[in-house]
Amino acid sequence: MVGIIKEIYNYRDLIKELISKNLKLKYRRSVLGYLWSLLNPLGIMLVMVIVFSNIFRFDIEYYPVYLIIGQTMFNYMSVATSHSMYSVIENGPLIKKIFVPKYIFTFSKVTSDLVDYLLSMSAIVLVMIITKVPFSWNLLWVPIVSLELYIFCIGLGLLLAQASVFFRDIQYIYSVIITAWTYLTPIFYPDKILPEWLHFWVVRFNPMFMYIKSMRQCVIEQTHPDFKLMLVGLLFDILAIGIGGLLFKKNQSKFILYI
């Protein structure tokens, strides 16, 4: 573990360059550029607030903030992991010609999407101001909760990146999984409305539930996040990094034969 952190530090220039490459390619030829990261979650939140305050009515305090938090965090997970799925294949031309630790590519993908996530955070602040959510010292928990989410995404990203090298069609399966996962995560509804048997599974085994709920606690309820929730989130981090990291490490010498 210490060895890997040291290696990441040694490759910091490469990681920075890969991140700026990802961002450049993403926003090149788009007029509003980085502003999209802010406007996109705002727009989606607006649509969903209109839909859900008129069609289904949930009795949730500060619903726009409730919604945009779930939306932003889930979206980050889904985008970052889908991007990392291609991180190894996409950099095939580089991997074929120069020796580089291959997880660097997955790591920089998840990290460059984090830039988007942070920009979306300013959209959340904007909505907080508009809907008059009080600011409290508990907001200091936001980076810690975000870190938990980030680490989870790296672990899952590594798992998907190595699997997609051998099985390219995993992307189709994953998009189905993501759809199911979206509805199984209380993003736009309160977890209480889930039927009891489903509620049992979601609050125990859906890591996204842990991260989103912790975030809502420190932003909307202005308390510290439930420590039990944070601990379970951390366990999912360890699980994701453990499984993803081990499989990636085990299979990475074979990548070259498949890309």
Binding site: K24, P93, L94, K96
Partner: peptide, 13 residues
Amino acid sequence: PLIELGAGFDMDL
């Protein structure tokens, strides 16, 4: 290493 063409370039950059 200069192995085959391209030597590790990203075509879009």
